[in-house]
Design a protein around this nucleic acid. Structure first.
Length: 927
DNA sequence: ATTGCGCCCTA
DNA sequence: GTAGGGCGCAATG
């Protein structure tokens, strides 16, 4: 006899998750409806399963015979009587989610499905009550939710949970995996760990891991509390003793109530099929055209208002293949050809791609269908791998893959494909054409979160990738990927390719819909091979010179230490802001002194300079400490560190440019950061002089002159500024003349500060601080600026209006920066977002323009026959080249032309782009 | 061994 | 007031 199977949908939980997972759609009335759309499709799928005996992916789990949606009726429940702080700090739901709550009830009614809520009970409790009743009647139960509190109810074979976003069944094994205990012990774990969102106190210092370990060791919460005095770790022991009451309270808070009378009898939840009305009316009203089409079985709607929701499939690591035979390799290559596009990922033995060796390659041809081709596992010989595993010959694999990876009719998809491009280039393979999911995400969602694979898998697939740490270990025990056994390596590497392919399916279709195609195709995607080549080239540094500077700085630092300790009447750690502050203010009695939030005196430059004006011991220490700070900064960050960064293979320094980190579209540089090499002080500039060209070569430095101000003049349409740039006039002098009626050193300096303040999103408070005037005076200056340059005021007003309305701003090339803070609750946060909104289009357009110049540069140099000239670095508005001495003079006009014309033809500026260029034996000399 | 903070280098 | 990365210290595990 087929047992009844009750499905209980956690409606409130679902809508919160759907809201954060799905795009912010609005229905045809302009009401936000993304979460409702998700909810509707989810119900649809559940209902469809009604007539299927078994869900395809789970053995024995049938579709529903009974179904209800459970909602929270009110925010106050009996738990608030127990503990008034319960859920007290939970932030209010987002503004565009609020109108969707009532629509959930409307949607449920449209399906003619019961919708149950009860005042004073949370949805979780109602679900518990129904679960208990149904189990008692011998029914199967499935709770449609992924809420951890509800996992307490799981009973093997009788009650499971369904995560519809992942299409994943959650059983006792899931609880065991996630919390290390059986479902019936979960309440004790949850009580110990607490929940910051619901404000369940738990025990301080006890997180999921410790809670799980304690319950695993002692069995129950009471047993843990009883054994507390014997626990070894002193802090944990004390916390358990001190907060035993909180733990018991938490236990009651997480306990689900299951003994209340049912609002509706079980039989009232029977599925009787879905009448076409009122469902059809609901779908029409909401404008869910694709679902409407499904319902009426008519022709496909030409343009559905909602995106097609990809059927989420679980990640099954055991299905990934390890390819070690030629026949298997051929089969995968054939599958990739047949698919027309596939994801590819390389595994290496080093993050540094100059030294890295290719260890393996993974491919994914369909979601869930991926393989790993190991090439060099166990080559080094080691303990983990007793003997070198059987693998295909790397040369053979590369020879077979080359036609595939270079086939112009096949799209290669990578996540941060710059790395793979470099690795394959080193092995004689030039991947083309390609897509990069990291850059797709960056161009769609900059400002909404990270763009690394783990971030994206979490955000779009609700999937936690296997951690690299879990495969290769961490710290001293860390091994390189070639030491990893093939089965583990396959799970990790193939998953990467699988995730990448699935992400591409989610992201690529959005590009056109969300107007990101232009910046992706015109700016970021074509930049990848250019940057790859710059990183591969690296720059030469004079190790001996850096070493000399290190020694020199070191001696001076030692000398200063002696003098400082004498003046301070005793030794202390000068590098510790805490100790320096205490010496200056408490021991030597310096006046003033402001403490930060961690209770430490501020000892930053402004503070030390202020103290240094005096003539007592504190002033002397402050002045000397400034010198000490400068030298130790230069030594530790530059002269010492840069020597370590010289690559043992190339003898040069290879930075890594991150293409998807900065919110505005800029690049960033790491390991080492070559975008913050000193230039402002004479001592600092000596470090720039250690960046050199090899014998017979020179370095060329070309930078845009005041590009951000020029772009502001164009974007805000300020005639005086535009003319001044066209005539080559001094822009700060002009501003001084307009604002103060006369130009001298002082007014020009103030005008310069104000011009920068505009670019950074002006505030009277901030400008006041910079100019050393009071707020009223700063505001008066701003008013005068707006009066003289009304276009600036309009630009700011329009930009702020735009970010408030749309939540993002755009550059002239269409690059978006999302600023969710513009809709934040606090004024401070909103104002901060507004300043970012004012700056991002300017800074971002500058980034777009120099990127366009970089993309065109290699071909322009090649066309001019300059085969020896290479672009090495980008520093936001500057490009650094290395050129044979014989090519320098010919290269300069090419570089100038490309940079000055970089916006054209896609963007036409009303101001010229000025470029300054110089060359010399070192970077310092080229300026 | 990892993490947050204060500080400071760049455009 | 914008955008970044990295160092040493001091407090965690």
């Amino acid at each position: 006899m087929a047992a009844n199977h009750l499905y209980l949908v956690d409606g409130s939980g679902y809508i919160f998750r759907a809201y954060h997972r799905l795009p912010p759609l609005t229905n045809r009335h302009g009401v936000p409806a993304g979460a409702v759309y998700g909810f509707t499709t989810m119900l649809w799928k559940l209902v469809e399963d009604l007539n299927k005996p078994v869900l395809s992916d789970v053995e024995g789990a049938g579709g529903p015979t009974h179904l209800a949606v459970i909602l929270d009726a009110s925010s106050k429940t009996f738990r608030n009587d127990m503990y008034d702080q319960y859920k007290a700090h939970r932030p209010p739901p987002p503004e565009d989610l609020v109108p969707q709550f009532p629509l959930i009830r409307v949607a449920t009614r449209a399906f003619s499905i019961p919708c149950i809520e009860e005042v004073g009970l949370e949805a979780d409790d109602i679900i518990a009550c129904y679960s208990k009743a149904a189990l008692a009647a011998g029914w199967q139960v499935t709770i449609v939710s992924s809420d951890k509190d509800l996992m307490q109810l799981i009973e093997p074979g009788r009650l499971d949970m369904l995560d519809t976003m992942n299409n994943r069944r959650l059983g006792a094994e899931h609880v065991r995996e996630k919390f290390g205990v059986a479902p019936e012990q979960l309440g004790d774990v949850l009580a110990l760990m607490g929940d910051s969102v619901d404000n369940v106190p738990g025990v301080p210092g006890v997180g999921p891991k410790t809670a799980s370990e304690l319950i695993q060791t002692y069995g129950t919460l009471e047993a843990v509390l009883a054994a507390a005095p014997e626990i070894k770790k002193p802090k944990l022991r004390q916390n358990l003793i001190d907060h035993a009451d909180n733990a018991r309270l938490s236990r009651e808070l997480v306990r689900l109530v299951c003994d209340r009378p049912l609002p509706e009898p079980l039989e009232a939840l029977a599925m009787k099929g879905i009448p076409p009305e009122p469902l059809k009316a609901f779908l029409t009203d909401m404008g869910f055209r694709s679902l409407l089409t499904k319902l009426s079985g008519a022709e496909a709607a030409t343009e559905a208002i909602a995106p097609r929701v990809e059927d989420a499939q679980p990640f099954v690591h055991k299905d990934y293949e390890t390819v070690v035979t030629e026949a298997d390799l051929d089969r995968w290559i054939e599958a990739a050809r047949a698919a027309g596009r596939f994801a590819v990922d390389t595994e290496t033995d080093h993050v540094d791609c100059v030294r890295a060796k290719l260890v393996g390659i993974s491919l994914a041809t369909q979601p869930g269908k991926a393989c790993y081709i190991p090439l060099a596992h166990g080559d080094a010989g080691d303990d983990l791998l007793a003997e070198k595993p059987v693998q295909l010959d790397p040369a053979l694999v590369l020879a077979k893959l080359k036609p595939l990876l270079e086939d112009p009719s096949l799209l290669k998809i990578g996540q941060n494909i710059k790395y793979d491009l470099i690795m394959f280039r080193k092995n004689g393979v030039d991947i083309a054409p390609y897509d990069d999911t990291m850059l797709l995400s960056y161009d769609l969602d900059a400002g909404l979160g990270g763009h690394g694979m783990d971030d994206l898998a979490k955000r779009h697939l609700d999937h936690a990738c296997i951690e690299f740490k879990a495969v290769c270990g961490t710290g001293k025990a860390q091994v390189t990927f070639d030491k990893v056994p093939l089965d583990k390596a396959t799970e990790y590497a193939a998953e990467d390719a699988d995730v990448t392919l699935r992400l591409w399916h989610r992201l690529k279709p959005r590009l056109g819909r969300e107007s990101a195609t232009r910046v992706y195709e015109l700016v970021d995607r074509p930049l990848v091979p250019v940057i790859a080549e710059m990183e591969r080239a690296g720059i030469l540094v004079d190790r001996a010179e850096l070493s000399r500077l290190s020694t020199e700085f070191g001696h001076e630092i030692t000398r200063l230490e002696g003098v400082i300790h004498t003046a301070a009447q005793g030794p202390f750690t000068i590098g510790s802001p805490k100790q320096l502050g205490e010496v200056l203010f408490d021991r030597l009695g310096a006046a003033g002194g402001r403490k930060g939030k961690s209770g430490v005196y501020s000892t930053d430059v402004t503070e030390l300079e202020r103290i240094g004006l005096g003539d007592d011991a504190a002033a002397e220490v402050a002045r000397l400490a400034l010198e000490w700070r400068q030298l130790s900064k230069l030594k530790s960050t530059y002269t010492d560190a840069l020597q370590e960064e010289i690559n043992s293979v190339s003898g040069r320094v290879h930075t890594s440019f991150s293409m998807a980190v900065a919110q505005t579209g800029r690049l960033s540089s790491t390991e080492p950061n070559l975008q913050n090499i000193p230039i402002r002080t004479e001592t600092g500039r000596r470090i720039r002089q250690a960046f050199v060209a090899p014998a017979g070569y020179s370095l060329i430095s070309a930078d845009y002159s005041q590009i951000e101000l020029r772009l502001a003049a164009h974007m805000a349409d300020v005639p005086q500024l535009r003319e001044a740039f066209a005539n080559g006039d001094d822009i700060h002098s002009l501003t001084a003349q307009e604002l103060f009626g006369e130009v001298n050193r002082e007014t020009r300096g103030r005008a310069k500060t104000i011009n920068f303040a505009i670019l950074y999103g002006i505030s009277s408070w901030g400008l006041a601080g910079r100019l050393g005037v009071d707020r009223t005076e700063a505001q008066a200056i701003i008013d005068r600026y707006f009066d003289r340059f009304p276009g600036v005021q309009t630009y700011i007003a329009e930009t702020v209006a735009k970010v408030r309305e749309l939540g993002f701003v755009t550059t002239l090339f269409g690059r978006k920066t999302h600023l969710p803070g513009a809709k934040a609750k606090t004024v401070g946060e909103r104002q901060s977002a507004e300043r970012q909104a004012i700056n991002a289009p300017i800074q971002g357009t500058c980034a777009d323009i120099i990127k366009r110049a970089m993309i065109r540069m290699p071909a322009a140099l090649a066309e001019a026959g300059l085969t020896g000239t290479r672009m090495l670095l980008q520093v936001h508005d500057e490009l650094v080249f290395e050129a044979p001495d014989g090519e320098v003079e010919a290269a300069k006009p090419v570089i100038l032309r490309v940079m000055a014309g970089a916006a054209e033809p896609h963007v036409t500026l009303s101001v010229p782009l000025g470029v300054e260029i110089g060359h010399g034996p070192s970077w310092g000399a080229a300026h």
